[in-house]
C-alpha cells in the first residue's frame, strides 16, 4: 500500500515554478539572439566602457585579505542560524516537559558562538596578534647592536 502523502508531492508546485523559470530564461535569451542585429564584433565594440577613457589593466583586482574575516564570521553565524531555525520550525521551546533544558542548551550554544565571535573581534587582535613579540625581539637586537657599536667605538 502506497503512502498517500509523500513529501515531494507537496513540492510539485515548486517543480513547476522551476521549469517555468528555466523556460523563461531560455526563451528570453533565444528571443534576444534572434531579434538583435548581428553586426561585426571587434575589440573596440567588446571593450569595457569607461566613460570614453581607454580601459587600463584587468578588471579583476585582488581585494585585501582582511575582508575574508567577515566571510568566515558569516559562515559561523549562518550555521548558528540554521541550528536555531529548527527551533522555530518546531514547538519544543514552549511545549513539552523538556522545554527548560532545551532553553538552557540554546542559551549555552548562543553564548558559546557569540563569545567566540567577541573573542575573535575584540580580544584576539589585542592579546596575541599585536606584533608585540616581534617588537620585543627587534628592540633586543637593536640594544645589543648599539652596545656592540659602543664597545667598538670605545676602543
Amino acid at each position: 500500500m502506497m503512502q498517500t502523502e509523500r513529501l515531494f508531492r507537496q513540492f510539485i508546485p515548486v517543480l513547476i515554478w522551476v521549469i517555468l523559470a528555466i523556460v523563461l530564461v531560455v526563451v528570453m535569451l533565444l528571443a534576444s539572439w534572434v531579434l538583435r542585429p548581428h553586426v561585426l564584433q571587434n575589440s573596440e565594440k567588446t571593450s569595457t566602457y569607461e566613460c570614453g577613457e581607454e580601459p587600463i589593466g584587468p578588471a579583476r583586482v585582488s581585494y585585501p585579505y582582511n575582508y575574508f574575516i567577515y566571510t568566515v564570521l558569516f559562515v559561523v553565524v549562518d550555521v548558528m542560524g540554521a541550528f536555531l531555525w529548527i527551533l522555530t520550525a518546531s514547538d519544543i521551546l514552549w511545549v513539552g516537559s523538556a522545554k527548560y533544558s532545551v532553553i538552557l542548551q540554546v542559551a549555552l550554544f548562543v553564548l558559546l558562538v557569540m563569545g567566540g565571535i567577541w573573542y575573535v573581534m575584540k580580544k584576539l587582535p589585542e592579546a596575541a596578534l599585536d606584533g608585540k613579540e616581534t617588537l620585543e625581539i627587534y628592540r633586543k637586537a637593536k640594544a645589543e647592536r648599539e652596545k656592540e657599536q659602543h664597545h667598538m667605538g670605545g676602543h
Partner: peptide
Amino acid sequence: QLIALIMVTSMVGAVALLKMDKA
C-alpha cells in the same frame, strides 16, 4: 555544544592565520 566549540575553534584559527601576517 561540541559543534559550537568546533566552529569557534576553526574561526579563531582562521582569524589568527589571517592576521598573523599583520602581527
